[in-house]
């Protein structure tokens, strides 16, 4: 990796003096890490006064912009579940046209937020098209593992054996029967300028990735894990710890893909577990803290299902290690 400019390092003392662009008073559930995630992203912007946010439907959109109010101090746009990246490409095209006519002298940075319902299922074709057309925007998918906003329906992001209201636990079915979509790999296969996974607990890592994704010329995608205590059923103050454990069990490994070199690189919080595999925790530790996996432990412990979950996690982790030449 050859970089002429030194990489931006977030320092809390400097960031704390910046203006808050995502304000208080929004209606997210108490303890929802999506609020922290949005704040971290807004504090990492290279040009905060010259950024436009386009947002897909999701918890963050519904809670932060109840008509006619808004919690965002930046120009902000929402249309539907499926077209947040298409909106962003339209905004960029409009600014380009106005620049050509001499009406604007600058094209603003574009930031797209979407939840996992939009990023994994409904909005894939718009995102895929926008990346293919090489629009200059950053697409942040915050993943809380289901459609939490409409009442916990399963999505492509829900892991196997998780309880949701549309994958009920009963005698015949132990929750959802299918594994999670590897969405960051799907977008990385589009060969964007930058693609990464992140978690809300590792704020420094996440903010560096946001800055990198905004500064790079061309499309960038970040898949960030943001736990939800209403579906996952953990005490609300443990949100950051759940995100941390997901990284420590290698359920959600952190890596980045650079379009320039076409290389997959494991990020520091996950590289530890590739170099020292004995530090990696069994995924059972993460599962037993969550109420949505309670049927794997009570009333009867289902060792076969836990072993299956561990096998799928290990397969994904081995694949990422292989991609990044660390395995």
């Amino acid at each position: 990796m050859t970089q002429e400019t030194p990489q931006w390092r977030p320092r809390l003392k400097d960031i704390a003096n910046q203006e808050e662009l995502f304000t208080s008073g929004q209606r997210l559930c108490a303890g929802c890490p999506a609020g922290s995630m949005a704040r971290m992203a807004m504090h990492a912007l290279p040009r905060p006064k010259n950024t436009i946010v386009s947002q897909a439907t999701g918890c963050l959109e519904v809670a932060s912009t109840i008509y006619p109010y808004t919690a965002w101090r930046v120009p902000w746009m929402h249309s539907l579940f499926e077209n947040a990246p298409a909106n962003a490409s339209g905004i960029e095209a409009a600014y380009k046209a106005r620049k050509r006519q001499g009406l604007e002298d600058d094209i603003p940075d574009l930031l797209v937020f979407s939840g996992d319902g939009s990023g994994f299922d409904i909005g894939v074709q718009a995102a895929s098209g926008a990346i293919e057309r090489r629009h200059n925007f950053l697409y942040i998918i915050y993943d809380n593992h289901a459609y939490q906003n409409t009442g916990i329906q399963r999505s492509g992001a829900t892991p196997k054996y998780a309880w949701t209201t549309t994958s009920e636990v009963g005698k015949k079915e132990p929750g959802k029967l299918l594994w999670k979509k590897p969405i960051a790999l799907v977008y990385a296969a589009h060969d964007p300028a930058y693609c990464a996974t992140a978690s809300v607990y590792h704020w420094r890592d996440f903010m560096k990735k946001v800055r990198k994704g905004m500064e790079v010329e061309g499309p960038a995608v970040i898949h960030v894990l943001s736990p939800c205590h209403r579906n996952w059923r953990y005490p609300e103050e443990q949100g950051m710890q759940m995100a941390k454990l997901a990284v420590e069990t290698c359920f959600h490994p952190l890596w980045e893909y650079e379009g320039e070199t076409r290389k997959y690189i494991l990020s520091a919080p996950s590289r530890v577990f590739a170099l020292k595999p004995e530090k990696k925790k069994p995924v059972e530790e993460w599962l037993e803290l969550q109420g949505r996996f309670r049927h794997l432990f009570r009333p009867k412990r289902r060792d076969d299902l836990i072993a299956d979950f561990q096998r799928l996690t290990d397969e994904d982790w081995a694949f990422i290690q292989k991609l990044s030449n660390m395995g």
Partner: peptide, 19 residues
């Protein structure tokens, strides 16, 4: 009557009583 409220802290009301 305005359709747009300009963003400011607590434009959507206070949330302290959730505590």
């Amino acid at each position: 009557f305005t359709c747009i409220t300009y963003p400011e802290a607590g434009a959507m009301g206070l949330t302290g009583d959730w505590r």
